[in-house]
Write a protein that binds this DNA or RNA. Structure first.
Length: 352
DNA sequence: AATTCGGGGGG
DNA sequence: CCCCCAGAATT
């Protein structure tokens, strides 16, 4: 059916059979574990996601376990991994698989695509690896590998580029073992055709690599990019009462850290206002609300996100948590470990 | 078509 | 300091 296998595809598959990495989700073709690994690995290195995968498989061996879990439990296990909408979508998708597909994963690209958090990449990965369907994945590795081998200068973050690389990958993918081909592309991109210092000298594709021939390796792939970063100035009030309890609140959907818990927070509009917080009305008002007084102030902390640079102060205040404040939950400090909290907060406690 | 969503690692 | 990472959803 598919005419001749492109030399590129033949070499990639051959390389993979000799060099594929042993990874826990490659032990079987269970769509649940494939799906879980793919969600965790979105924009995430394998070394960073691996321990999370193992935690989740242990806590939730099947999609039924995951669907039955409390959202706070899912968020707590996801704590520290970032892009927290993945965790909420993961949970929602598990419920959908249980309720709409009776606990059996959908086995077509289109139905997989309907699951929250499953986009073109993830639907291709699951359908090819678990169900042997011919859908090519196009992730960062594939963009880099194809843009170099074929020396393509179309920006990968343009709609023309997305289309071009999608079409190319779907021409190259064989009818047999499409899942192996997809994983081969990614392993090869991460181990050989690396972003910096690719191993061209020993690369089995070097004879046909056009970017190597044209000396454009270092400038492939082309990206328009440019992310502008916003600075934000924050103060957390860590209230502590005479029974060692505190107040936390679950963050809403419209901002960073959706679904995570945090202490009462005050945001300032400038560095000056932030550093002089003690004379601001919003700070004084908050002290009144929590019937609190300042006990200890942390050093300023800088916390870097992709699109925001956060400047954070932690104020330990002694106050009253019993007269319940709207939207806040009263917790003992030892119970905070059960909640997912932003890394900047957990790190503060680790270091103090 | 652009922006926004984390956190860590490498050069 | 920059870029990148098994991308997706929203605006």
């Amino acid at each position: 059916m598919d005419s001749v296998l492109h030399p590129f595809s033949r070499i990639i598959l051959s390389w993979y059979s000799a060099h594929k990495r042993e990874l826990p989700w490659r032990n079987n073709k269970n769509p649940y574990s494939i799906w879980l690994s793919e969600i965790i690995l979105q924009q995430t290195r394998i070394e960073q996601g691996l321990s999370y995968y193992l935690k989740f498989i242990e806590a939730f061996p099947t999609v039924n376990h995951l669907a039955a879990a409390k959202e706070d439990h899912v968020m707590q296990l996801w704590q520290g991994l970032g892009y927290y909408s993945r965790a909420r979508n993961l949970h929602a998708a598990a419920k959908m698989v249980v309720e709409e597909y009776k606990g059996r994963f959908p086995d077509s690209y289109d139905d997989l695509r309907k699951l929250p958090g499953v986009g073109p990449y993830t639907a291709s990965a699951i359908s090819s690896i678990a169900f042997n369907l011919r859908h090519a994945v196009v992730d960062g590795n594939v963009y880099r590998l194809l843009s170099r081998y074929f020396d393509i200068d179309t920006p990968i973050d343009s709609s023309a580029g997305i289309r071009e690389f999608f079409d190319l990958a779907n021409e190259l993918i064989p009818n047999f073992s499409p899942g192996d081909f997809n994983q081969a592309m990614m392993d090869f991109g991460s181990l050989v055709c690396k972003p910096s210092n690719p191993i061209c000298i020993d690369c089995p594709l070097n004879a046909g690599c056009l970017a190597l021939k044209n000396e454009t390796i270092a400038s492939r792939p082309i990206k328009r990019g440019k992310t502008k970063v916003k600075k934000r100035y924050l103060l957390y009030l860590i209230v502590k009462d005479d029974e060692d309890h505190t107040l936390v609140r679950k963050r809403g959907d419209k901002d960073i850290w959706a679904g995570l818990y945090e202490f009462p927070i005050i945001e300032f509009q400038s560095a000056e206002e932030w550093l002089g917080f003690e004379s601001t009305d919003k700070y004084k008002e908050s002290l009144k609300v929590f019937q609190a007084e300042l006990n200890h102030l942390s050093n300023p902390v800088k916390h870097i996100l992709s699109h925001q640079h956060l400047h954070v102060l932690f104020a330990r205040v002694t106050g009253n948590t019993k007269s319940s404040v709207r939207d806040y939950e009263r917790k003992s400090f030892s119970d905070l470990a059960q909640l997912g909290m932003p890394r900047v907060i957990t790190r503060y406690f680790e270091q103090s």
